[in-house]
């Protein structure tokens, strides 16, 4: 045995394993990532087509809060309102599913491809793997949200002009204020997506079936929304994190009312952290049998 053993260990650095950049490259080329981005562009296009080609009506109706807040009716007034309406549409279901998909699929899909065991044996420290997965999942969700807003704004501008934001609660603003208000709405909706994201991420660690993780998260959010609609539950509903999902309308008031948004955002950040901590503690000890 004359040849010295090549000691590769001293050239191994845990900090270099599965960097966010590498994980991003691994995920970006996936078809589902591109489909999510595509849907975010397609949604405003479909709505523009529906509005311009469909039968004309004076007011869109829709909205929420007993129909008091007529967001949809204002959608065609300009790019800012159109982007706001698309955010409203997206926040209900589309973005929830996308967040659940990016986070729920994260670990479970590696398990289903059998790549998880090779990454962990590389060895990518387990927490580091979860970190990369969570960051990239959130990043992709945020990118989808940003694409939705930007695409809606551009498509809205081409279709309806760039008139500043008119609030369904009364008032309209100049461009700077419109951008500020829209950014608050988008940011708040983004924070609220932490709820499906967190549930999906925990599920992703618990199961090896990617669709199961995504589905479970979506079902939990839907059940929470149904409970939230049962008036008999009264103030108990305030305990549901999804109860604060629409609090961004307070960013459209003449003066922004922050309280409900502060509660909702705080709630979802804490809930997300809690779910991630449970996921990490679970993954620390999990036997990888996939």
């Amino acid at each position: 045995m004359t040849t010295p053993v090549i000691d590769t260990a001293h050239r191994y650095q845990p900090r270099r394993t599965l960097t966010v950049r590498v994980e991003l490259v691994r995920q970006l080329r996936r078809r589902r990532t591109l489909i999510a981005f595509g849907v975010a562009i397609a949604l405003p296009l479909i709505v523009v087509a529906a509005v311009t080609l469909g039968p004309s009506s004076s007011s869109g109706g829709g909205g929420f809060g007993d129909g008091d807040l007529d967001l949809v009716g204002l959608a065609t007034s300009g790019a800012w309102n159109f982007a706001l309406t698309m955010l409203f549409f997206g926040s209900g279901f589309l973005l929830t599913i996308i967040a659940a998909m990016f986070l729920g699929d994260s670990v479970a899909s590696e398990a289903s491809w059998s790549t998880l065991r090779y990454l962990l044996a590389a060895p990518v420290p387990r927490r580091r793997l979860l970190r990369a997965k969570a960051i990239v999942g959130l990043l992709l969700t945020a990118i989808t949200l940003a694409i939705l807003v930007l695409a809606s704004w551009i498509i809205g501008a081409l279709a309806f002009g760039v008139a500043p934001l008119s609030s369904p609660l009364g008032g309209s603003w100049d461009t700077a204020e419109s951008a500020y208000r829209l950014a608050i709405v988008a940011g708040y909706i983004g924070l609220m997506m932490l709820i499906p994201a967190g549930i999906a991420f925990l599920m992703s660690v618990l199961t090896d079936v990617p669709l199961g993780a995504v589905g479970a998260a979506v079902v939990i959010v839907i059940v929470a929304n149904i409970l939230d609609a049962i008036e008999a539950l009264g103030d108990l509903r305030r305990l549901l994190p999804t109860d604060y999902g629409n609090a961004w309308v307070d960013a459209l008031a003449p003066t922004i009312a922050w309280e409900q948004m502060a509660i909702g955002a705080s709630y979802s950040v804490v809930l997300f952290t809690l779910l991630v901590v449970i996921a990490v503690l679970r993954f620390d000890r999990k036997d990888i049998t996939s």
């Binding site: 590769t8 191994y12 599965l18 996936r30 065991r117």
Partner: peptide, 28 residues
């Protein structure tokens, strides 16, 4: 190691898989 079958990302080429695995492994 090679345990109970290969684990590869189906949406990438074989070369990309090897390259990304090496980059993810933390070895220089």
């Amino acid at each position: 190691c090679f345990i109970e079958g290969p684990g590869l990302l189906p949406h990438l080429t074989g070369r990309q898989n090897l390259d990304l695995f090496w980059r993810a492994s933390g070895r220089t």
